[in-house]
Design a protein around this nucleic acid. Structure first.
Length: 595
RNA sequence: GCCAAUGUGGCUCAGGGGUAGAGCAAUUCACUCGUAAUGAAUAGGUCGUGAGUUCGAUUCUCACCAUUGGCUCCA
């Protein structure tokens, strides 16, 4: 694919990823040109390509843009492509660049130039009447854009800052060929089918109701089975690693959260305080303070450390209404939380064990598509973070060093830290929407000091421990959402709400079917008998596409005569014949080994 | 919270200024059936809520609520 760079030289590029990026970037320009033709007052901010396509943030002034306007823009884009305009770059000195943009009424571009370093080369690309400030590279002619589609519009803040004006973001995607575009559209449709909210409803896993409140989903019997299995799973792992589990209340005094610093740095994410008998309480957004108090409950020797306190903790956060998303993000959720109280010397070892646990769990669930982030504070942000430069420098470099020593592959992100310390976050991409954090491991020199926690060291001195906050499954709710989407609701046997469904060919075989089902239930298997008078095909279909049960047992005359069962495995059309005893052994083995 | 869209029986959706329709699910009946939908009948909705325009609103207008896609934020 031929592309043109800002200095005017043309190169043949042969790298699929790069090609796609350039193609989409040019698509963004063509879209902007189309918009400018249709809405001459439009003022353009940023218009990049990304891994899914491209977008342009546009200020339409007082003009309201809605979905219905997209086809018009798309048509105009097609016209521009057809016109086959050459794409030509040019470079201007700073003053002239500013003047050009000012003359064209591009106030965002002018501001953008102001943000660029003094020695920056300021380049432009022109196609027909349209000029955009851009570093490129781009396609050489508009006709080289073969397959594109506008996907929707949304709001986006100028420079990603909610204090700034909200612009209209128009999103689209582009591919080298129409077939690839079509395949992508199909992929989007399939992602919708994987959406945990949809599957949760289909499988009766959870529900929500306006009367209960938004962001407050409720787990139904089948969903709660999955939830409990996850709880048992992670607690078992943690117990084996020396964690001790506790139970603490969902409410605490405001004073507790003033002591921890949440009141100063996290208040926006908390439900407002409630007053009773002259005392103020809050629903807790985090349970760290409770665990700090548990540590403080008695004196500790260095010999006691590390102390690992875990809890499946109910937390409540006041999340902005627009961010709520099924059980992936609600205003109530259950963290798989733990706080490790360690000596400075133990930091590396304990972070290492946490990281090992995270990847061990991911292996069990087959999670391979994740990204590690070292989340650091934004030193400019004086509100969000506990202010103590020395503490932050120490914590950030300590965590970075440990991650390097452990050989973790990560990227650093500024402004993503917790208010009390830096984090290692492990992020995944759900079926729909932006990346989410699943696991986290946070290094905290702050809270132990605020709570004046101590241990007596070998030299007899009283010292302050370091705290690691960590969540492996993150929250059980969010983890479950992710697993639902990864498995499309086809849970492994140990997690499946219904593990076996017993189906009979006719009512005549009720007695035998019941005895088979009873035997499975007695063996600890979650088995159900479908005793409706439906055709066998109908019941198989439902067990397969609605309940997504791992095993179906079909019983008819043949099985009754032979004293056997016929087993059909989810997603398989072949069946095998076996005895109840053998089947129980097989399934119990799978459950035990969490297969 | 912000930008935009959406809201019709449990679910998926059609309709449209004169007071509602389909499929699936549910219930009942018949069939007693061999591996992804048996047939028939019945029941179920003050069309998200409130106000306005109108002789008349589920349909038009406004406000509110909720949901969805993004933005900000986040486990």
């Amino acid at each position: 694919m031929k592309v043109i760079f800002y200095d005017g030289h043309v190169e043949e590029i042969d790298n699929a990823e790069e090609e796609l990026h350039i193609l989409r970037h040019t698509a963004a320009h063509i879209m902007a040109q189309a918009i400018k033709r249709l809405y001459p007052e439009a003022d353009f901010a940023y218009g990049p390509a990304n891994e899914k396509g491209f977008y342009y943030d546009v200020d339409f002034g007082d003009t309201k843009i809605s979905d219905e306007d997209l086809p018009k823009i798309e048509d105009e884009m097609r016209r521009i492509v057809k016109e086959n305009l050459p794409v030509k770059p040019f470079v201007l000195p700073r003053a002239e660049a500013i003047k050009l943009m000012q003359d064209r009424g591009e106030k965002y571009k002018v501001e953008h130039i102001g943000d660029l370093p003094e020695d920056a080369v300021i380049s432009f690309y022109q196609q027909g009447e349209y000029i955009d400030m851009c570093v490129g590279p781009h396609l050489t002619y508009t006709k080289a854009l073969k397959a594109f589609k506008l996907l929707g519009l949304s709001g986006a803040y100028w420079k990603n800052d909610s204090n700034n004006r909200m612009l209209t973001r128009i999103k689209g995607t582009a591919f080298k060929t129409a077939q690839e575009l079509e395949a992508y559209m199909l992929e989007l449709k399939e992602a919708e089918l994987r959406d945990h909210r949809r599957i949760g409803r289909e499988m009766s896993l959870f529900m929500s109701d306006d009367l209960v409140g938004k962001g407050l989903p409720m787990f139904l019997p089948k969903g709660y089975i999955v939830w409990q299995e996850l709880e048992n799973y992670i607690k078992e792992k943690e117990r084996a690693l020396g964690y001790q589990h506790v139970l603490t209340p969902c409410v605490g005094t405001v004073d507790l959260y003033k002591t921890s610093g949440h009141w100063d740095h996290y208040k926006n994410n908390m439900f407002p305080a409630m007053e009773v008998e002259g005392e103020a309480f809050v629903l807790r957004p985090m349970n760290c303070p409770h665990h700090m108090m548990i540590y403080a409950n008695r004196a500790h020797s260095y010999r006691d450390l590390p102390i690992r306190i875990g809890e499946i903790a109910h937390d409540f956060r006041f999340e902005a209404s627009g961010t709520l998303k099924g059980i992936e993000r609600g205003r109530h959720f259950c963290q798989n939380d733990a706080h490790l109280f360690v000596t400075p010397e133990q930091i590396k070892d304990e972070v290492g064990k946490v990281v090992d646990l995270i990847f061990d769990v991911y292996k069990d669930f087959g999670i391979t598509n994740y990204r590690c982030v070292l989340s650091l504070r934004d030193p400019e942000d004086k509100v969000k973070y506990h202010q103590d430069d020395e503490m932050w420098n120490k914590a950030e470099s300590a965590l970075r060093e440990v991650l390097n020593q452990l050989g973790i592959n990560y990227t650093e992100e500024i402004g993503e830290a917790a208010f009390y310390g830096p984090k290692l976050d492990v992020n995944v991409k759900p079926a729909i929407g932006a990346e989410i954090t699943l696991s986290t491991c946070q290094l905290d020199f702050c809270l132990p000091a605020k709570f004046d926690l101590k241990y007596t060291d070998s030299d007899g001195e009283r010292k302050t421990p370091v705290v690691l906050h960590r969540a492996i499954l993150g929250s059980l709710d969010r983890f479950m959402a992710y697993i639902i989407e990864e498995t499309k609701g086809k849970f492994p046997v140990w997690l499946a709400p219904t593990q076996v469904k017993v189906l009979r060919v006719s009512e005549r075989f009720s007695e035998y079917s019941e005895s088979v089902c009873d035997a499975l239930v007695d063996a600890g298997i979650r088995a159900e008998l479908d005793d409706r008078n439906e055709k066998i095909g109908y019941m198989i279909r439902e067990a397969q596409v609605v309940d997504r049960v791992p095993y179906m047992i079909i019983i008819g005359q043949k099985e009754v005569d032979e004293g056997t069962i016929s087993v059909r495995v989810r997603d398989n059309t072949e069946t095998f014949t076996t005895t109840v005893g053998e089947f129980v052994e097989k399934v119990c083995g799978e459950i035990k080994n969490r297969k």
